[in-house]
Design a protein around this nucleic acid. Sequence first.
DNA 1: CTCAAAATGAGTTGCGTACCTCAAAACACC
DNA 2: GGTGTTTTGAGGTACGCAACTCATTTTGAG
Lengths: 352, 352
Amino acid sequence: MAETLTTTALTLKDIARQAGVSLATVDRVLHNRPGVRPDTVRRVKEAIERNSFQPHVAAAELARGRARRFAFVMPSGPNPFMQQIQDYLGEMSGWLSSRRLGVETVATDVFDPSVLAASLEGLSDDYDGIAVVALDHPGVRAAIDDLVDAGAKVVTLVSDVPSSRRHHYVGIDNIAAGRTAGALVGRLVGQKSGKVAIVAGSQGLRDHAERIFGFNQVMASEFPGLSVLPVLEGRDEDARSEQLLARLLGRHTDIVGLYNVGAGTQGVANALNEKALSDAGRDRQVVFVGHDLTALTRRLLLQGVMHAAISQNPGHEARAAVRVLLALARGEPILREQEKIRIDIVMRDNLP
Amino acid sequence: MAETLTTTALTLKDIARQAGVSLATVDRVLHNRPGVRPDTVRRVKEAIERNSFQPHVAAAELARGRARRFAFVMPSGPNPFMQQIQDYLGEMSGWLSSRRLGVETVATDVFDPSVLAASLEGLSDDYDGIAVVALDHPGVRAAIDDLVDAGAKVVTLVSDVPSSRRHHYVGIDNIAAGRTAGALVGRLVGQKSGKVAIVAGSQGLRDHAERIFGFNQVMASEFPGLSVLPVLEGRDEDARSEQLLARLLGRHTDIVGLYNVGAGTQGVANALNEKALSDAGRDRQVVFVGHDLTALTRRLLLQGVMHAAISQNPGHEARAAVRVLLALARGEPILREQEKIRIDIVMRDNLP
DNA sequence: CTCAAAATGAGTTGCGTACCTCAAAACACC
DNA sequence: GGTGTTTTGAGGTACGCAACTCATTTTGAG
């Protein structure tokens, strides 16, 4: 009836006895210290295996004594999503300090490779782990690799640099996000055929490019009745996005769907509202899908202007980054499933 | 540039010095032991506040020494969702044992109130915390309250008993889930009008009833073009669900949407497939929204038979339950945002 | 003022590990 | 067999807190 999943009360002393060696030797094996014959190493490791011994993390943490410091390198400027991540880090302060963890944020211009690389250099002297919102650029990659070489644990946050030797990436799969957006636009448009517009910040940004790629993939393969118009590059600015989109909506009266890849959401909404006014009465509402859950997108969802938002949970992202850095620093395994950032579809009725 | 969120290195000794008392007194205050004048209590608490002192959890855990044991009271029988939760608990075994936590599962008939209550009785002698998939019934409520009175920490899992004194509920908001299902069916049906069918296990089950409630709410207020047919009670059985639904589909040729509230998914899919065959060619596909991500629903989504699944992440649920029980046992605060179980919308293109 | 009760101080022990030192034993090599 | 080197044992200290004992001081009631 009751199935035991875990029962452990063994200590290092027990392992030492079983392996027929002293505590000191077990310690040497456990921490890869030199001066142990290969044969003895094997015996000790076997004893550990046999009992599936796990060092008591609390004891280890206490004995090691050293407080750990992590740095979060984030964009300067008023990006609400990044602000939310920092807010959640603040909310964790109790959790952090009761584990003697120090978390500090370093604001920098993450869009300038040389500035970002410069910010990263030397961080390994002061911090055990670094989480960085990274631009995918050779200079940045080199800076990350340098940190890793210097012994720091590095995770990329939100935006990845897959070619670097970072230990982990905490963020969503942007191609899948784009595919999801495509599926939503296609399904929500329904039977109608027509054109679909895309507004992005820039196709030079890795995450935007990946989202567009995924979006086009789905539109081409599953919704042949919808044709995708060339991407508008609004640079994540409201004014520019509004202007470009308004012009496009004027030229193409048969636009039935819109995918906003990045920010500039207010501008997009303005352009759509103008069109809605001039179309008044006719059933011509454009299906609008965008990213991230902010005060603005929340309002637009409630108003019915926006139909769905693809969101990544900033709280989860912040916590996952800290947990991953901590596990890496301790040499513990990472619960990959737990730390995976999911793509959430948010519509009016499941607004969290 | 660098903003410090946390810096702590204080120990109890420092607090004692600041408050002008001895370590023993601080200890008495911290653990609500008797024999301290109210005024002294205040002084000590102020010193703790002032420094926002947090005891070092590792040290506390080590000093307390006692291993903790948690019980998971789960349905016997082959429920795949519950099986997934147990699987994830198994995957955590390393994490658990390195913290000297024992987790055991107790299988019982959670649908029989007296059997469930009997299983719960006496558990508090052996376990520090209990997670239970609970039926909402007076007998069960009493059993839960008894456990709480006996000093055990209790969380309800997946299904809540809000009237009990359980410390926490780990699971989704089922009314919101139903609302989400309603919004999905309504939006995915698109412009068409017609009828919508509901297949549930039983309206007597709290979670099913809540989901139906939420679903109807949205349909009534937002999709007046769609009329909801009376609920079919398939008892979560494939054969019965198929039979009932097939008959309904025969009687009403204008069914455009279907909400499957519980299990019996294979039966529902069978009935839909039959209809699809007889409707061949005509654009009459029924929008099908259901719950949970299993091997079957995953296949149906990929085949395009099912359009969306509302899912709760069983891994998250298992981990959250353990973390909450641990925090409760340690007297730590619970990170509510972290432990909240989200409602995931899964469509073909964001299948995890 | 006296005396018991209440409050407090001072101290100890132990939790399981990390990290260190020093001496003893085993080994390899000539 | 002697030498030097490598491997191993034994033991200690520290980490911060929980939980306890016992002596001492303070307090309040009579």
